[in-house]
Amino acid sequence: MSEKKVKNIFVNGAIEPGFIANSIANHSAKTNIGGHSIFLGQVRKDEIDGKFVTSIDYTAFEELALEKMQAIREDIFNKYSLTCMHIHHSLGIIKTGEICLFVFTSSAHRKPAIDACEEVVERIKAELPIWGKEIFEDESHQWKENI
């Protein structure tokens, strides 16, 4: 693995729409970019056993997750011709309707950005030690891994 500084992908609380908008706006000066791909993960109000989810409490084995994310980041940059990639994942209690995952990839052309974004999302869900505990209307909890 390279000697690059490991980037912290974790955000305490929900990812705010203004943060997402600013991230997009900040790329307008990068005129070598021709395509962006964005994935936004939002907490659903699932019904399970007659109860509705009101929020998810996200936890992670942060050090391991960040090391693994750095390896994924390097793999993706080696595989796709990207200009940049930004990943943000929430920790803590995120209410239904709020954003908990923001993946933003950019490249000179749309296809690498789209393909890289999709692969990053799938690898985050499959490989990172991040867990979500569903919180229901009656405040009982049920674990779900890699939400």
Rank of each mutant, 00 (worst) to 15 (best):
A25F: 08
A25R: 04
A25M: 08
N26T: 06
N26K: 10
N26S: 05
S28M: 06
A29I: 12
K30T: 06
K30H: 11
K30L: 12
T31R: 10
T31M: 02
N32R: 01
N32A: 10
N32T: 13
N32K: 10
I33T: 02
G34M: 09
G34N: 10
G35A: 13
H36C: 03
H36T: 09
S37F: 07
I38L: 15
I38Q: 11
I38P: 01
F39W: 13
F39T: 09
F39S: 11
L40I: 13
G41I: 09
G41M: 12
Q42P: 02
Q42A: 15
Q42W: 03
V43K: 00
V43I: 09
R44G: 05
K45N: 11
K45S: 12
K45E: 07
D46W: 02
E47T: 14
I48G: 02
I48F: 11
I48S: 07
D49F: 06
K51F: 06
K51W: 04
K51Y: 13
K51Q: 15
F52D: 00
F52E: 11
V53Q: 04
V53E: 05
T54W: 03
T54G: 03
I56P: 05
I56H: 03
I56S: 06
D57E: 14
D57F: 07
Y58C: 05
Y58N: 11
T59I: 13
T59A: 11
A60R: 04
A60D: 07
F61S: 05
F61A: 12
F61Q: 09
E62T: 09
E62Q: 15
E63Q: 06
E63H: 12
L64C: 04
L64A: 14
A65F: 08
A65Q: 06
L66E: 06
L66N: 04
E67Q: 15
E67V: 04
E67K: 14
K68D: 12
K68R: 15
Q70C: 08
A71K: 14
A71Q: 12
A71E: 15
A71G: 10
I72M: 10
I72K: 05
R73L: 04
R73A: 05
E74D: 11
E74L: 12
D75A: 11
I76F: 10
F77N: 08
N78M: 10
N78K: 14
N78S: 15
K79S: 13
K79H: 13
K79D: 10
Y80H: 14
S81M: 10
S81N: 15
L82Y: 01
L82T: 01
T83C: 12
C84R: 15
C84V: 02
C84D: 14
M85C: 13
H86W: 03
I87S: 00
H88S: 11
H89P: 03
S90Y: 01
S90D: 05
L91T: 01
L91P: 01
L91E: 04
L91H: 01
G92M: 01
G92V: 01
G92K: 03
I93R: 12
I93D: 09
I93E: 13
I94G: 00
I94T: 10
I94Q: 01
T96C: 09
G97V: 05
G97P: 02
G97F: 09
I99K: 09
C100K: 00
L101V: 15
F102I: 02
V103A: 07
T105Q: 10
T105V: 06
S106Y: 04
S106V: 08
S107Q: 13
